[in-house]
Amino acid sequence: MYSDDYLYTKEHEWVRVENGEATLGITHHAQEELGEIVFVELPEVGKVLAAGDTLGSVESVKAVSDVYAPVSGEVIAANDLLADKPELVNQEPHSGGWIARIRLSDKSELDGLMSADDYEAYLGEEKKH
C-alpha cells in the first residue's frame, strides 16, 4: 500500500522527490477517512510556501481537511485535472490524484519526514487511540 519510494507526514500526506522537486498528495489512509472527495482547492503556481503552511484543502461531502506543505519551496505545478475529477484523489491517491509539485528550497527538511515503515507504524499507533 505505502511505497518505499515515498516519504510521509503525520498530516497524512505523501511526498515523492525527483530532481529536487517534490510531488505531493494525500495518502490512501487520508482519502479513506475523508470519504468521497468532491472538491480540491489547489495552490497557485508560483506561490512560495514554508513547510507547514496551508497549501490547499480537500473536501468530501461531510468534512474538509487542509493540506499542508510538507517542505518549503515554490509551487511549480498543481494538478488541474482535479478541478474536474476530484474523485481521482479517491481512486488513485498516490498517483493520478497528486495535488501539487514544489521545488525544494531546503532538502534537509526531508529528513523530518517518515518512511513507509514508519508511516504504517504511525497509522497503527493512531488507530489505538
Binding site: 468532491v38 472538491f39 473536501e59 468530501s60 461531502v61 461531510k62 468534512a63 474538509v64
Partner: peptide, 8 residues
C-alpha cells in the same frame, strides 16, 4: 456544506 460552520 463544507463552507459552513457546522463543519468548518
Amino acid at each position: 456544506s463544507t463552507r459552513e460552520q457546522h463543519i468548518r
